[in-house]
Amino acid sequence: MGKRAAQQNRRRRREKRRSPGRLVLPVLALVLVSLGGGAALAHFNGTQSAAAPPPVAVASPDPTTAPPSPEPTPTPKPKPKPVPTAKKTTKPAPKKTTVPQSGAGTFTTAQSTGDAVGSGGSLRRYRVQVEDGVDISAREAAEEIQKILAHPRGWAAHGRGRFQLVSENADFVIRIATPATADQLCLANGMNTHGELNCETTTGVVVNLKRWLLGSPTFAGGPAEYRHLIINHEVGHEIGIRQHMGCPGPGRLAPVMMQQIKGLNGCRSNAYPYDEDGIYITGPVV
């Protein structure tokens, strides 16, 4: 072999001898990582790290002892809802009816007409007048009187007469007047009504405004029903029943021809000539 070849052979042998040493550090690093974790590798690289804290031992529960039950959480009671308080309402006092004691003494005639009601007796035409200055419509009063005379328990329904509302050429007049005017009209026919009563005159019927609006303290019904008694009583005189009647007995209906405002004497107040069975309500003549 030449000198040059011998040198190359020696160099190769030296390289073979060195090659295992090159693996020492990587192998050693892997061993340290597997044995000491990150802390050993860090120390090897020249950095100082705090050692990981030792694991904390956890006691195993005793299998024979049940774990304590948690304390029950009290359920909050719902707050009661406030009960709404009803608003107090003040009932308005009934409107007081004011009745004027006197008036103008002149009258307005209702410009109203109607069909004749009734099936027997002679036809009696009437007109309605209201004293001037009184807070009552003559037309409305005429309509109400027309309904009263056509009532199924009234005179016309039982053959005692036929009646027709007209505005002129009447057989008699129904006047609604203040107490003072009513007294004058009634006194002219010899009757003292004392500012309280109605009357029937030679020209027709005079209705005291006080009775028309307020009714009577002896009558069980209201003013609207008492108006039936006023008209039926005075028109009863107009068709020929001249005398008054008394109470037929305790608890019985008072005749419409009884002066019920002066007392019932044990009878029950009543505004109609006939009862619901169509029987005429009568009593002793007084």
Rank of each mutant, 00 (worst) to 15 (best):
R125K: 15
Y126L: 10
V128D: 00
V128W: 05
V128G: 01
V128P: 02
V130S: 04
V130K: 07
E131N: 01
V134S: 05
V134R: 07
D135F: 03
I136P: 00
A138G: 03
R139E: 15
E140R: 10
A141G: 05
A141S: 13
A142P: 03
A142I: 01
E143V: 04
I145F: 09
Q146C: 02
Q146G: 13
K147L: 11
I148H: 06
I148K: 00
L149V: 12
H151W: 15
R153S: 12
R153W: 10
G154N: 11
W155C: 10
W155S: 08
A156N: 06
A156K: 04
H158L: 07
H158V: 05
G159P: 07
R160S: 11
R162N: 08
F163H: 05
F163K: 00
F163R: 07
Q164M: 13
Q164W: 01
Q164C: 05
Q164D: 02
V166R: 10
V166C: 08
S167A: 15
S167T: 14
S167D: 15
S167K: 15
E168V: 05
E168P: 00
N169Q: 13
A170M: 04
A170G: 06
D171N: 13
D171E: 10
F172A: 04
F172V: 01
I174Y: 01
I176Q: 02
I176K: 00
T181L: 02
A182L: 01
A182F: 02
D183Q: 11
D183P: 00
L185S: 12
L185E: 14
L187I: 03
L187T: 08
A188H: 07
N189C: 06
M191H: 10
M191S: 13
M191D: 14
M191N: 14
N192C: 00
N192M: 06
H194R: 11
G195M: 05
E196H: 03
E196F: 08
L197Y: 13
L197D: 14
L197P: 00
L197M: 10
L197E: 14
N198C: 09
E200K: 13
T203V: 13
T203N: 14
G204T: 09
G204P: 11
G204F: 07
G204L: 11
V205E: 13
V206C: 08
V207N: 12
L209P: 01
K210R: 15
R211A: 15
R211N: 12
R211F: 01
W212D: 00
L213V: 08
L213F: 05
L214W: 07
G215P: 02
P217E: 08
P217A: 11
T218D: 12
G221H: 09
G222Y: 04
P223Y: 04
A224L: 11
E225S: 15
Y226G: 05
H228F: 15
H228M: 13
L229P: 01
L229M: 12
L229F: 15
I230H: 09
I230T: 13
I231S: 07
I231H: 10
